[in-house]
Simulated assay, not measured.
Amino acid sequence: MAYDTLDRPKSLAARLDAELRHAHPTTVIEAAVEQFGDKLALVSSFGAESAVLLHLAAQVKKDIPVLFLETGMLFGQTLDYRKTLAAHLGLTDVRDLRPHYQDLATADPKNDLWKTDTDACCHIRKVLPLDRAIADFDAWITGRKRFHGGDRLSLPVVEQADGKVKFNPLANWGKAELDAYAAEHQLPAHPLVAQGFPSIGCWPCTQPVEEGEDVRAGRWKGLDKTECGIHVARAPGAVVNLGGDI
């Protein structure tokens, strides 16, 4: 499978999606690596379902750059899991992305911006660090799935966003497939899953989920918010208020 790297990202993504929309996740990852090589990264939260995608990727390319958003607000269990899982899978290039000191000093000096503006908090702790890191790549892999609902219900396997090609190898998989794969390969679970956290983000904005609730119901509970912002398309040159009087 070979494609012209001079193709515009949108047309290339459309052609790849048409070819890969029913493919096994491993085939999608292999196609991404073949097409983009060292210009491909994988973004992982090392959260509740992350082990499956990371294991799949490790079978294809153990030195794939894995970008981990270390927001400074993560659960201690997540930080421990990031280290143990990366070692378990033999991943050799996991990069911790942290918010810039100046962004925090200006917009969130007391580390309490999450109380008043979760969008701005996510922007300086997730969106900006990822934007800086992803600039070095032409494409990236995500762990999003349609069964998570919301805006993800119509998620394609390959898409274009902000000038990059994005691969969603697990888009077609449901919880049954994820659980079966994790069991087959004896993948270690995130320690908070057993405590009722099926989706795990930063500790101030993540709660356990009640029986019968959506998988992501514990994220920003009570707010009209379902995404942190890294998967929200932005207009070119768009400026996001960082909070305060900026």
Rank of each mutant, 00 (worst) to 15 (best):
T27V: 05
N168R: 10
N111M: 13
V52R: 01
E70N: 15
V43Y: 06
I246L: 14
P65E: 03
R95I: 06
L85V: 10
R146P: 03
D17V: 02
D103T: 14
A48K: 05
L79Y: 10
E34A: 11
A217V: 11
A58G: 08
Y181H: 01
Q160S: 13
D96R: 15
D179R: 12
A238I: 00
A107D: 05
E213S: 08
G143A: 07
L40R: 04
E184H: 06
K225I: 00
D103K: 11
T116G: 01
I124E: 03
P9R: 07
E227H: 07
T106S: 03
E34R: 11
G163M: 09
F68I: 06
H55N: 08
A235R: 12
A51C: 14
G143N: 06
K115C: 03
F167K: 03
D112N: 14
L79H: 13
N172Y: 08
L104P: 11
W114T: 05
L113W: 07
D214G: 06
L12I: 00
D96C: 14
A183Y: 12
D7S: 04
W220M: 11
L104H: 12
A171H: 11
Q59D: 07
L104I: 15
E184Q: 06
L16D: 00
D17M: 00
V43M: 12
E19K: 11
D224A: 14
D17E: 01
K166N: 07
I64T: 02
M73I: 01
W220T: 12
W173P: 05
W220K: 08
T206W: 10
L91A: 06
P129V: 08
K62V: 09
W173M: 11
K115H: 05
K164L: 06
L187P: 10
P65Q: 07
A238H: 02
D96Q: 15
F197T: 01
C228D: 03
F46R: 09
D136R: 15
Y101C: 05
A161H: 11
D138M: 01
A51S: 15
L223C: 03
L223E: 13
A217Y: 08
L91Q: 07
P109E: 15
A57K: 00
W220L: 08
D119Y: 04
T142R: 07
L56G: 12
E19D: 12
T118L: 14
G237D: 05
P191Q: 04
A182V: 09
K115L: 13
D80L: 09
R234M: 00
R146H: 05
E210W: 08
A105G: 12
V215C: 05
A105I: 10
T71E: 05
K166P: 04
R95E: 03
A87W: 14
Q59V: 03
S44T: 06
D63G: 05
L12V: 01
H123T: 12
